[in-house]
């Protein structure tokens, strides 16, 4: 059965788009048929992170308004044949999205894909509420930092009240994904640790993505980090998170960079 998954956070810049691309690709690498949908109307970036920015012809708004068919707007990934992108419009604003129109598009996507991964815009306005509106599950992307945790708490409250599932008296299944985590700094008490964040948010953990240069390297070249270097620490963390979404039991670890002996010595000393 199709799952609609919203990747959300409230706060901007915490890694929603990176996580949407990485989880979407990891689910597709796991054999699922996946569409990643950009809800950030006016500030689209999922196309860029996926490396499909030059292939956008029609977008979500065109489909919502009936200007284009869904099949005309969907862009197939060049690396994975079961991964697709539905881009947002760059020229329109969020008011062009309607609840009813989004509902229609999601219903049509449900008949074609195993996973519909919705990349939410930052904030708590229309774009963000519509991105979560039809979700079955939610990934709340959180940095180990006070303003991000506060905004995540707010978004969790909205997932429990403003979604179709919540209005029916059902629950959206929520997961916290901690990104930009630095285990060394957390161990020294300079950064909120995992237990602190989970206790405050009272929401189960999907995965821990370590702070890593590989994330920027991947977005520089327009490739989801799980495809760019599947052996890198963030890629392994995202792949584990995707396996958990698919219902597998995977031990929770913070993947570390695989360094040579000398680097490891130097790294330790620097830390």
């Amino acid at each position: 059965m199709t799952k609609v998954l919203v990747v959300t956070s409230g706060k901007g810049g915490v890694g929603k788009t990176t996580s949407t691309a990485a989880l979407g690709a990891a689910l597709a690498q796991g054999g699922q048929s996946v569409v990643v949908v950009d809800f950030d109307v006016g500030l689209r970036n999922l196309d860029l992170v996926m490396g499909a920015e030059r292939r956008v012809v029609f977008d979500l708004i065109n489909v919502v308004q009936g200007v284009a068919k869904l099949s005309q707007a969907l862009i197939r990934d060049k690396r994975l044949e079961n991964l697709w992108l539905l881009p947002a419009s760059q020229t329109r604003d969020k008011d062009a999205l309607t609840d009813e129109g989004v509902g229609r598009v999601i219903a049509e996507l449900r008949s074609r894909f195993d996973w519909i991964v919705c990349d939410s815009p930052a904030g708590i306005e229309r774009g963000a509420t519509l991105a979560m509106r039809y979700a079955d599950e939610a990934v709340i992307v959180t940095n180990p930092e006070v303003s991000s945790v506060r905004d995540s708490d707010r978004i969790i409250g909205m997932l429990d009240s403003k979604t179709v599932k919540a209005e029916r008296g059902e629950r959206v299944e929520k997961h916290v994904l901690i990104t930009r985590y630095d285990p060394a700094r957390a161990a020294r008490g300079e950064m909120l640790n995992i237990d602190d964040i989970l206790e405050i948010l009272a929401t189960p953990l999907l995965g821990i993505i370590p702070e890593s240069q590989d994330v920027l390297k991947a977005s520089n070249v327009g490739t989801p980090v799980t495809l760019n270097n599947a052996e890198s620490a963030p890629a392994r963390a995202y792949i584990d998170a995707a396996r958990r979404l698919m219902g597998e039991q995977v031990a929770m670890t913070v993947p570390a960079e695989r360094k040579g002996f000398m680097n490891r010595l130097l790294g330790r000393r620097a830390a």
């Binding site: 506060r150 008490g189 300079e190 909120l192 640790n193 405050i200």
Partner: peptide, 13 residues
């Protein structure tokens, strides 16, 4: 320790 600001963050939150 002197650098442990995380407990403060946790309590404030």
């Amino acid at each position: 320790g002197r650098n442990a600001s995380a407990p403060v963050a946790r309590e404030r939150l």
